[in-house]
Each structure stands twice: as C-alpha cells, then as structure tokens.
Design a protein around this nucleic acid. Structure first.
Lengths: 344, 344
DNA sequence: GTGAAAGCGCTAACAG
DNA sequence: CTGTTAGCGCTTTCAC
C-alpha cells in the first residue's frame, strides 16, 4: 500500500475501498446517488489515507470554485475591517473561500480584477477603487457577478449596496443645526469616492437650504485617514488661519477622531463646549471613552447581507441583473460630541 | 468568430492567432521559448478576445496554485489587522493570492485547515488557533509548508516566527520597576495562547526575581480584547475589591487601552500619576493622543518578512525544514503612561 | 446504484 | 522555436 505521502487522489481511495473512482467522487458529493454502506466504506478509506478532495480539480469541471474575491482599500479605516469581518463570517459559514485583495484607494481596480479573474472566482465584492466599464463588461461576459460595496459607478451596470450617504449627510447637518451650530468645517475624504462626495453633498445642501452662507462652510481634505484628519485640522486652525467654527463634520469616524485628538490634544479645545464634532460610520472606536462620538451609523450587517444577496451565489447561471442599487438608511447615534436636543 | 461571451480558452486564442494552443500557453509563461513576434500576435489576439488564462486549470498540472492561506483569529485586535495588511502587501507584490480564513481564538484550526487544503494552497500562515499534530502531519505529507505567526506549538515540527515575548514581558517589568512601581496588575489574554503566556511569564518572573511578593501581582482575565480589558479592570477595582496598584500591564495594547478608558473614564484615575500603564504590540492607536501608551513594540514588518522566508515559496519541492523557531526581539517605546527614567 | 469513458483548460515532455 | 501528445484529479453523461 502506498504510504501516506505525496498526493493522495480519489483513485487511491477507490483502490483501498475496492470501488470505482467515480464512486469516491459521489461519496464526497452531497446528494448524489450512492448506497449508504458504500459511502461509509469510502469515507473510512479516505480517512485512513488522509485523503482530501481536490477542489481545484473539481472546479475545472464544475466551473465553480466556491471562491469569492473581496477587493479592499483602506484597512486603516476600522470600518472596512468591520466589513471584512462581516463578509468573512457570512461567506465562511456558507463554505465559500475568500480571496482577499487590496487596492490603493481611488486607484483603478483593473489589475486586481484581472488577477482574480484568473482564479475563476464565483463573484467579486468591491469595497474600494474604481471600476472601469471595460472590466464590468469582461465580468459580465464571463458571468461573474460583481457587487459594489458602499460605492457606485455612475452609469455602470454593476449592482451595489450602499448606505444612503446623502441622506446621512443631511441627518448630520440637521443634528448640528439643531444643536445650535452656525459655522462649519467639513473633513472630506477620498475625492474620487462617491461615498465621500455623497455625504458631503447631503451635508452641504442641507446647510445651504437652511440659509448657512457658503463662506461659513470650510472644506478640509482629510484623505479618509486618521492622520489626514488630524493634520488637516491642525493645518486649518492651529495657526489661526481660520477661526474655529461651531462644528466639524468628519465624513468618516476615523477622520473625526483624528480631528478630535488634534483639537483637544494640540489646541486645548473643549468638545462639545467649544466645538461640536460629528462623524459617520459608527465604528467601535467611536463609542470609546475618549471619543464618545455622535455619528451616523452604517448598518454593516444589513449591508453585507444585501451584498451577498446581490451576489446570488446560489444561482450561478442566472443572468446577471443589471445595475440594482440598494440604498439602506443610516441613523444618528447620539453620544456626547453633539448636545442632544431635548425634544428628540 | 465566437463572440466575446462565455469562456474564452487558449484554444480560441490559438485559433484567432493561427498558432498552436501550446504556443498560447508559452506566450503567457515567463521565460518560455517563443519568438517575440509570435508572442506579440498571441497577446493581441488574447486582448481582442478578452482572454484571461485560467489559473485553476494550470494549477492542476503545475501543482502550484500561487495561493497562500492566512488563518486569522481576532481581527478586533488592530495588531492582527496590521499583520494582515503587511502580509497582503508582501504577498500581493509577489503575485500570490491570499485565502483568508478566520478561526475563533484558541479554538482548533483543523476544520479551517482541512478546507484550505482542498484548495491546494502553496503554504499556510497561522496567526491564531491551535495546531494539532495530526494536521501538522497531513500538511507535512502533502509538502505544504506551514508557518506559525507569533505562536508556537510546543513539541511541534512546524516552523514559526514570534516576538521574543518573554523577554518583552521582562522589559516591561523593568520599565515599571524602574519608574518606581511596587504593586502590579496583569491583564492576561487568551489562556491558550502561548503569546500571552510568555509575556506574562517574563513579566512575572522578572518581578519575582526583583523581590516583589506574589501577592502584589494581581492577575486579571482580559480575553485579549478591548472590552475584556475594560471590564476586567472595572470588575477588579471599581468596587474597591482590590486597592489600585502602582501599575498595570496589558498583555496587549488593545486591552491596555480598554483598561485606561475604564480607569480614567469610570474611576477618574490619573495616568501615570495615580497608576502607570504598559502595553505590548505598539499598534497605531497606542500613539494617539488619548493614550500615548508606553509599550513593547513588535516589529511587524520584520516578522512578516521572516514568516514569508520560512514559507520559502520559491522552493516548492524543498523538503520542509523541521521546526525552525525564529524569535525577534521587541523593544520598549516610551510614551507617557510610564515616566521615563532620566538615565535612559 | 454503479462503473467506464470522455473531457474541463492548461502545462510539459517529446520530437521535429 | 514550435506543434503534437499525454496527462493533472475530478465530475459527469451514459449504459448496465
């Protein structure tokens, strides 16, 4: 008997169990017709040989790899770590493997996609980067569903889930206005990201509608990072280049946290007494003692759930639906960086 | 001509370019002998057809998938996010795909490993969970290298890289002692993790050697999480069950941060005036204004580098070396939670 | 329910 | 340098 070394194939198992090779295949396939006795015998033999079915080989015929690619941008933002965690948990539970990829924020995803396409993934989840229409086309032709997470490509046929970012921006504007703020700073994120743009637009539009003059809305580039938010805040206010406004809105929590640390740590500003701060995402850190940040919560679980629904892994052949764009609402989580109006 | 739909194979490209199928294969293989002219023509045809080589199929013959499995535990600990990031960056640069897997901390990795083995990964990096000798054996037999990150399995033949955790624990003990602390609390992590045990041991041993009575070293279970550290601290000190010690050592930064927030936020303790705090890892957050945590730095880049060296992806066939255990030293990063002795 | 045989898309000798 | 020919390990008709 061949010892337990090198590759053990279904043929080896078949030999040991005294059955045909196809029987072995059947024994390892849910719901294929094989007698219980034979299956048992085969599984026994397999265990004895430490046999593990080769998914790569089976993918070749089934045309399914049971792998999904997750394209990530900024893992420095805990929000996306949270998204990754949620995705892993859900996919793993379904027995789906995850091919992880990172792409510089705002850059093109073509290279990454080309690479994952080689691996014949069953689906792609894009949480970052731009998506070219060429790639959309290629994926579509190959029947590979692609879901955009928290972004959309205007005019693209790709589906996606996102938080209603514009509405969320308005929510924050209302909250700040309601707390008495009349002058504002806005920490913007990745300029190419629709997420950042939408939040910003919702926020600004609402303010403008309520009669805030544009001059009282200062825009700062925070690059979607802690350090970016920190630095932008320092740059704008430390040397009194600008008067400190009543409120600052970080397009995401991590920038808002950077701003808070700059404000309190370097400038001795009291929050919310001297200035209010709003964030967006509701990452775990936002709830911690140093921050207790009032923010707009993104329902990560709901969003990842929807993303996987859109991927529709159970219906491989299914014609890819064109451009479904799911928007889930966010809501304000009141903590201590914005005084909460009593009437709420 | 078959339109750009469905699967395009090397055969289609061959037909369009008027060459043999193997020529197409060669055109896409680095350093195989093919005339530049022919290669160009083939690449052209491929582009026209949106052809993407099927890695799954090629893996079947080459016996290499160019995929590495990364088994993760606790993504709630930013340290492991940092590790993941470093791993992704390095592997991606080498054109290696990453199969991500999470496993509950401290639990057995057998299931996860069995699953990734099906995918014929070229290597496995384990940053969490236990490794059974059975799995070690199976991987060894199949010629799949497995590298343990920041853990080791006593008596196992698996290789690994880790920070010199025991020495790091001693370093922290010295630092605290040097700053005048004489009574201590120790926030322990995952009881099954050798990492936590080693740090704890180094710390305690050093204290004991210096004449600190065991009674003055209070052990707390922090579960390796922020919430765990926070809760354990509250539980121990809030109701005066124990007097507040001179210093508290969090086996990792995230627990230390939880403790700091509990101490200052809920108990009004001043750090370091009333109590000093030490951490371990040097995660990004430790450097932020609310914390400025003095901690033992783990050199993540160096460690991931070494881990990949051990994986030795370039030498597929190479007999797996038995149990190399690389220890890289950590060092104290002085910030403000422990007063720094002047003589340093 | 079960075995034989024909591929899945590619690489790797092997001749030329 | 190039085409031909066998497989890689598995799933899947197709008869029995």
């Amino acid at each position: 008997m061949k010892p337990l070394s090198g590759r053990v194939t279904s043929l080896d198992v078949a030999a040991l169990a005294g059955v045909s090779q196809s029987a072995v295949s059947r024994a390892f396939t849910e719901g294929s017709s094989i007698s219980e006795a034979k299956r048992k015998a085969i599984l026994d033999a397999a265990l004895k040989l430490n046999y593990v079915p080769n998914s790569i080989a089976s993918s070749l015929t089934t045309r399914r790899t049971n792998m999904v690619a997750v394209i990530l941008g900024n893992l420095d933002n805990p929000f996306y770590v949270q998204v990754l965690k949620a995705l892993i948990t859900r996919l793993q539970a379904r027995g789906v493997q995850i091919l992880t990829f990172t792409v510089k924020n705002g850059s093109n995803s073509d290279d990454a996609l080309m690479r994952v396409l080689r691996y014949q993934v069953d689906g792609i989840i894009l949480t970052s980067a731009q998506l070219s229409t060429r790639m959309t086309g290629i994926c579509h032709d190959r029947g590979i569903p692609i879901v955009l997470f928290n972004r959309y490509i205007p005019g693209s046929s790709a589906s996606g889930v996102r938080c209603d970012n514009a509405a969320g921006g308005r929510l924050m504007a209302e909250a700040l206005l309601g707390a008495g703020a009349r002058s504002f700073a806005l920490l913007k994120g990745d300029p190419n990201g629709t997420t950042s743009q939408d939040r910003q637009r919702g926020f600004t539009d609402c303010l403008l509608e309520r009669g805030i003059p544009p001059a009282d809305i200062l825009e700062l580039e925070g690059q979607s990072t802690y350090d970016g938010g920190h630095a932008a805040t320092l740059r704008a206010f430390l040397d009194e280049r600008h008067p400190i406004p009543d409120a600052i809105f970080g397009i995401n929590d991590i920038m808002a946290m950077g701003a808070m640390d700059a404000l309190r740590g370097e400038m001795g500003v009291k929050i919310p007494a001297d200035l209010m701060v709003g964030g967006f995402d509701n990452i775990d850190e936002a709830d911690r003692w140093p921050y207790r940040l009032t923010t707009v919560r993104q329902p990560v679980d709901e969003m990842t759930e929807e993303a996987l629904n859109l991927l529709d892994l159970d219906n491989p052949g299914a014609a890819i639906q064109p451009g479904i764009d799911i928007k889930v609402p966010g809501r304000i989580v009141w903590r201590s960086t914005i005084p909460r109006p009593v009437d709420l």
